[in-house]
Simulated scan of single mutants.
Amino acid sequence: MPRAFLDHIAVTAFSLEAGAAFVSDTLGVAPQPGGEHPRMATHNRLLRLGDTLYLEVISPNPAAPAPGRPRWFGLDGLGPQSPPSLATWVVRSTDIRASAAASSEPLGPIESMSRGALDWLITIPADGSIPLQGAAPALIEWQAAEHPASRMEDKGCALVRLEIFHPDPERASRLLSSLELEAPVFVHPAGPGGPARLVAHIDTPHGIRVL
């Protein structure tokens, strides 16, 4: 079985400026410029959370041609009034095909993606949705020896833990077990009728902040 690790957490937003402001206001630390994803007509900003872990703010890129397909991470469902949110997360695998086959939940076809000089494989549902209401991650396999987080500016932030709240916690827990995830990720019941949500506890220069 391949090894699997928490790679990054993703804040989705209708605009990159709104998403970056949400992170800055919550954590007291501003994410740095990222780049563009031409195939998805999206762009991002980034915040290092460790040598092999980071936070991504991602949104549609209004300056890019429409992709002719649903954007990833449910971004097409956002409007000007949609608040930024910690909507999904990404798990790094040493063998994405084996991890996808072992997953107890369908995570989508494996596709090649790029941003600048970076290339990777990632699972993307065909309809662009976020699997299991955000409880299920995308899988990623970087096509490089060095993790991109190692080249980001270190602003003194680190992920303490990621919590998943889901109305069917046993289903979410089965998924994590099937991926054999090595990460501080914990599943909790969302409560009767409660929606699924993600909560990240992040150590910052201003103390622990909750996103």
Rank of each mutant, 00 (worst) to 15 (best):
90 V>P: 06
96 I>Q: 04
51 D>K: 10
57 V>G: 02
181 L>T: 06
103 S>K: 00
18 A>M: 08
165 F>W: 14
90 V>Q: 09
37 H>W: 08
139 L>C: 07
185 V>R: 04
91 V>H: 00
189 P>R: 04
169 P>G: 10
96 I>V: 10
46 L>V: 13
54 Y>P: 02
155 K>N: 03
172 A>I: 02
53 L>G: 05
79 G>Y: 11
21 A>N: 07
200 A>G: 06
109 P>M: 15
119 D>Q: 11
159 L>R: 04
80 P>K: 14
204 T>V: 03
172 A>M: 04
199 V>N: 05
128 G>R: 08
64 A>N: 03
174 R>P: 00
32 Q>Y: 00
194 G>I: 01
49 L>C: 13
92 R>H: 11
33 P>N: 13
6 L>K: 13
159 L>G: 09
102 A>L: 13
19 G>V: 06
159 L>F: 10
192 P>G: 00
3 R>I: 10
141 E>W: 08
72 W>A: 12
100 A>L: 15
83 P>F: 12
37 H>I: 05
105 E>V: 15
134 G>F: 10
57 V>S: 03
110 I>E: 00
72 W>L: 04
87 A>D: 15
187 V>S: 06
11 V>H: 03
113 M>I: 08
5 F>S: 14
52 T>G: 06
181 L>Q: 02
16 L>V: 03
207 G>N: 06
8 H>Q: 11
114 S>Q: 09
103 S>D: 12
140 I>G: 05
128 G>N: 09
63 A>C: 09
140 I>R: 02
4 A>V: 13
73 F>V: 08
37 H>R: 07
142 W>Y: 07
198 L>E: 13
39 R>V: 07
202 I>Y: 07
69 R>H: 15
38 P>I: 13
151 R>E: 10
17 E>Q: 12
82 S>R: 05
102 A>I: 09
149 A>R: 05
21 A>E: 06
111 E>D: 11
208 I>C: 12
126 A>G: 15
204 T>S: 01
117 A>L: 10
97 R>W: 08
36 E>S: 14
14 F>E: 09
209 R>H: 07
123 T>Y: 04
211 L>V: 14
59 S>F: 12
143 Q>A: 05
105 E>M: 11
158 A>E: 14
77 G>W: 02
